[in-house]
């Protein structure tokens, strides 16, 4: 090993780059395999429904809370600004557009990552370190198809549903704040329909399906390749959350640039 700091730095970044490429490659292979296997028979619908239930039930409360307060606080800010221009009639449409395009999908996905993505990583890594995944393999049960495929599918299916709920609750939250701030109720609602196009809603839901794919596949990847005891379980859970957050935010930027 050289003691030259410049060479050491180059070596460090070289290793970092190599490691990133390794993880990205292994992650892509695992996710693609899980997706491909999920469309091949035999389909285990019970396992899929169980995962959908876990994703939905675990997150519903936190998603509703997030939607409600996001819509509410966003409205507070918007009213303050729009009053100066006597543009109160635009408060409702602005809140609805922001919720459906951006805030609903992104914040829902971040919250679900904390609840569900981390739980998937923890569960799979506990299964890994206690050899349950090896046990499946020896029994001739492909752990990717049996464990990962249903989780990723559940993420893709449930995130748009949860996002739709967050969107709706967010608009309601905004509406309540607007009324509290003395806005005319009709005024808040009347122009939403004119200005918010259905495409905004769809694009937001498509985004959230992609986020669902990201948070479930990253959670499963981190769990599936855990190494080393109980400490490994903790590490993989943290990594799952951090990596999902970054991937969701970067993915959001890319999709937004392409879609709108």
């Amino acid at each position: 090993m050289s003691t030259n700091p410049l060479i050491q730095m180059v070596a460090f970044f070289g290793r970092l780059a190599l490691e990133s490429i390794f993880h990205l490659g292994r992650y892509s292979i695992l996710s693609l395999r899980a997706l491909a296997l999920s469309v091949l028979p035999p389909w285990r619908l019970r396992t899929l429904f169980r995962q959908m239930e876990l994703v939905g039930v675990n997150s519903l409360f936190v998603v509703i809370l997030t939607g409600l307060f996001t819509g509410a606080v966003f409205t507070l800010q918007v009213i303050y600004g729009f009053r100066r221009f006597s543009a109160e009639s635009m408060v409702g449409p602005t809140v609805a557009t922001a919720m459906t395009r951006e805030l609903g999908p992104v914040l829902t996905s971040l919250m679900v990552t904390g609840r569900v993505g981390s739980a998937m990583a923890a569960e799979l890594s506990a299964m890994k370190v206690t050899e349950q995944i090896d046990a499946l393999t020896v029994m001739g049960a492909d752990p990717v198809k049996y464990l990962i495929s249903p989780r990723i599918l559940a993420g893709i299916i449930m995130l748009p549903l949860l996002t739709a709920i967050a969107d709706a609750v967010g608009v309601v939250g905004g509406y309540l704040v607007a009324i509290g701030k003395g806005l005319d109720p009709g005024q808040f609602a009347s122009r939403i329909e004119d200005i918010v196009v259905i495409g905004d809603v769809y694009n937001g839901l498509i985004k959230s399906a992609v986020f669902g794919l990201i948070l479930a596949s990253v959670g499963c990847y981190m769990g599936f390749y855990t190494k080393g005891g109980a400490e490994g379980v903790g590490r993989s859970t943290t990594h799952a959350v951090v990596c999902s957050y970054v991937a969701i935010l970067v993915g959001d930027f890319i999709m937004t640039a392409v879609m709108f």
Binding site: E131, Q132, A135, V138, M139, G140
Partner: peptide, 20 residues
Amino acid sequence: LRELRLRMGLLFQDGALFDS
């Protein structure tokens, strides 16, 4: 390999039971 595994049974040292 899968066919072969269907003919095998393995008792893991620590059980490896499914805790779900």
